[in-house]
Nucleic acid binder design. Structure first.
Lengths: 207, 207
DNA sequence: ATCCTTATTGGACGTTCGTACAACAGGTGC
DNA sequence: GCACCTGTTGTACGAACGTCCAATAAGGAT
């Protein structure tokens, strides 16, 4: 009699690992199809599980998207910190590393940027996403202000300069995502570096 | 016997007017609910017509959204040109007017910015939206390059400077939309003005 | 080898989606 | 006042949506 024992129909995962795989699948779907395509079934197929399982780990698809934002934000934050740490102790080098990290892997990925746009599209609609955005933006701006202060920028200019640099980085990042054929990552980095130097120049009196 | 003639159940519109009202309703829905909420029925209710009428004017909801992007883009472009024209003939004044127009009515409206984010979220998914984006972005950047040239910026710096300024404006515009309580329109305009001056400063040699 | 826990499946439910189309009715020309 | 044109409505249809839950089975414990 031949061996008729069927192979396992599915494999179990540790809850944390499965949860993470769902979050990563959600991020991939958001990057590929945008927020409108991020349905429970699509995400489940992407993760290689049944649709019902999503409900087992998250109270609803909204919660999964929110968790994906938090996770993605943490990844970006870690990448920024890593780039900064790698730059050493010199304040200006740290600042430049922090700013240009957005135009190198893993942040410069078009997929990540597309995912991020999906989150932006939710900020006005969902309060918990707005809270996460404020946290993320405030964290970025706060680190930037600290770095600028270390570089000797006067306190009175910290806020405005940090906002300007953040806007510049976001805008370049955005364009990189929307038209990668028109703007390359290394050119974006070069532009950011030059703009950073100009924006932090010792200010001549206005007029 | 009392007057029993019923009042008209609906009013006809000229096709062009009705078409425009659908586009404007679509823009309002995009601003309020994002792309995920822009269904045929929601837009129809917003426009005060039946759902079926949308199909009478557009082959599908995608076409309506695309038309809304084109219309919104034209409005923004017109507002930019108007601000520039109002500034007179002096090149530097025209440049500054062009850049800061994004932080005054009608462009600075949070609703318009939210609508714009909805379009961004479609760029990677829908080629016709990507084409409209490239057109819009190229137009903006082109005008900026011309203005910068008029202000005496060397040709070699035109492209990079225009990209930097565009990114800055987009980033400030974005933050204004996402967290209006953290960044006011007039502060964004002031930051843009200052950054513009710094980015167009006569370049000292690198190093 | 058997039991137990629970991760996982698959299907049912009601809702909303986009689209198509027959019937209705406002407005204009006669 | 009548007839034509067509803008407009309302409905119907299948597909996809989010959510729920009973049944199943994987994998470690005993």
């Amino acid at each position: 009699m031949p061996q008729v024992t069927t192979p396992p129909a599915y494999r179990r995962s540790e809850p944390d690992a499965r949860r993470l795989s769902l979050i990563e699948a959600c991020a991939r779907v958001l990057a590929r199809e945008g927020i409108a395509g991020a349905s429970v079934r699509t995400i489940a197929v992407e993760a290689g599980v049944s649709a019902g399982l999503v409900g087992h780990y998250f109270p609803g698809v909204d919660a999964l998207v929110t968790a994906t934002y938090a996770h993605t934000g943490a990844r970006v934050d870690a990448a920024l910190k890593a780039a900064m740490a790698k730059a050493g102790d010199e304040p200006n080098a740290r600042l430049e590393a922090f700013v240009t990290a957005s135009f190198a892997a893993p942040i410069a990925s078009p997929e990540l940027l597309a995912t991020w746009i999906a989150f932006w599209s939710l900020v006005r609609v969902r309060p918990e996403i707005a809270a996460l955005h404020d946290e993320q933006y405030g964290g970025f701006k706060g680190q930037l202000e600290r770095l600028l202060a270390d570089c000797g920028l006067p306190d009175a200019q910290l806020r405005a300069t940090a906002i300007a640099i953040t806007a510049l980085v976001d805008g370049l990042w955005l364009e990189l995502c929307l038209s990668p054929h028109e703007l390359a990552a290394d050119e974006a980095a070069a532009i950011a570096r030059d703009a950073l130097a100009r924006l932090t120049w010792k200010a001549p009196a206005t007029g």
